[in-house]
Structure formats: C-alpha cells, structure tokens
Computed example of a mutant assay.
Amino acid sequence: MLREKLKEYNIILASKSPRRQQFFKDLDIDFTIQLKEVEEIYPPELKGTAITDFLADLKSKAFSNLSEKDLLITSDTIVWLEDKALGKPKDEADAFAMLRALSGKKHEVITSISIKSSHFQKIVNDTTVVSFKELSDDEINYYIKNYQPFDKAGAYGIQEWIGFIAIENLEGSYFNVVGLPIQKLYIELMNL
C-alpha cells in the first residue's frame, strides 16, 4: 500500500540506527541508506520538541542536492528528564548516571522526523511519557555490561532487558521509544 503510494520517490533514510532501518524494512517500502556526519549541536535555549525538531532539520540540511524524485527522512530522539535532554551516553559512567537519574521517575521520549524533498519539508514530532521503577545499582550495572546501550538516547532500549524490568507505565507510542513514531510517519507518507 505505502510502497505503491511512494513508487515515484527515491526514499532516502539518513540514519545509522538499526532500529529505524528495520522499521523501514517492516513498512515494506524501497529505500536506501545515506549517511552524512553532522555535529549535533543545538542552541542552549531550546527545550523538548524544539531540540529534536532543530536536530532533525539540521541533519536534513547536510543533503543539499536532492533530486526531484528524492524523499529524505531524517530524525532525532532525546530523553527529556526534569527540563534536561539526555542524549547518547559517552561511556559506562555516563550511562550509569543517566539510568540512575531515570530510576523511579517519569520522563519523556521525544522524536522528531523531517520529511524533505527538493520542493517541500515537513517536520513532525511525537512524545511518549515513560515511568521507571526504582532501579538498583546491580540492575543498572547488569544492563550496561550486557547490553552496551551507548547508541541509545537516555542509555536504554525499551525493547531490551531494562525495558522488561523497569518500565511501569507508558503513555503514547511504544515505537517512538524504540526510535521512531512509525504510525505518525506512515500517516504523513500516506498523505504526501
């Protein structure tokens, strides 16, 4: 269905995330992966969705020569806790500090998606509220050692062990927490 709708486009996914790549495969659309290095720096006054909107757009700007048929998808995800953005951890100590901060609290997972062609751009975002149980230091250390969550915002993957044992409640899209609000993306692509 979506494949038919998008047959006129060359879909470009600009993401090295294996989870986002799998989502695109599971949507049954033809796409290519193109990566460009972008320094993910945003103005310090930005908050919440403004950060992810800015970064999704920044990533799209690295592709300056889109052809008439190209449709570029870029995205960015952050964990938003107590008025602060948590990105990907730098190392084990950073991952531990993030998970310790999330323990016993609610946080938001925010993802923005940029859909861009040579003649239009649309940026949409989605927010999911996640509640964590209190985590012991042993649980945090076990997760970091066995799952190496260094490519994940907030130092965790909901689809991994930590998600099974830590998440008490979820308000919003599960898939957004995995890395892409896939239903929202599907709706936007169907409405092109």
Rank of each mutant, 00 (worst) to 15 (best):
D151G: 10
K122D: 05
L46G: 10
P181A: 03
T77Q: 07
H119V: 07
K25N: 11
Y142N: 10
Q159P: 08
R20T: 12
G87F: 10
S75I: 04
Q22W: 08
R100A: 14
K47H: 03
D137T: 11
L192Q: 12
S64E: 02
P18F: 13
I113D: 00
R19A: 11
E8F: 07
E171H: 08
K5M: 08
T32W: 00
T74K: 01
N65T: 08
Y142R: 14
L58Q: 11
S64T: 11
K61L: 15
F23L: 15
S131E: 14
G87S: 10
Q22D: 15
F120P: 09
L189H: 09
K69N: 13
E160R: 03
L81P: 05
N65R: 00
G163N: 04
L189Y: 05
L46S: 10
K16Y: 15
K106L: 09
E160S: 09
Y9T: 06
F96E: 10
Q183Y: 15
K25P: 06
T127D: 05
N10G: 07
E134N: 14
D151T: 06
Q159T: 10
D57K: 12
D91Y: 05
L170P: 06
S15T: 09
I41E: 04
Y142E: 13
D28I: 09
E68G: 05
S15L: 06
L72A: 03
V109N: 00
L192K: 11
E40C: 01
Y143F: 13
A93E: 12
E8D: 14
S60K: 04
I162P: 01
Q121V: 10
N65P: 05
I140Q: 03
S118F: 08
A97V: 11
I113F: 03
T111M: 09
F24V: 05
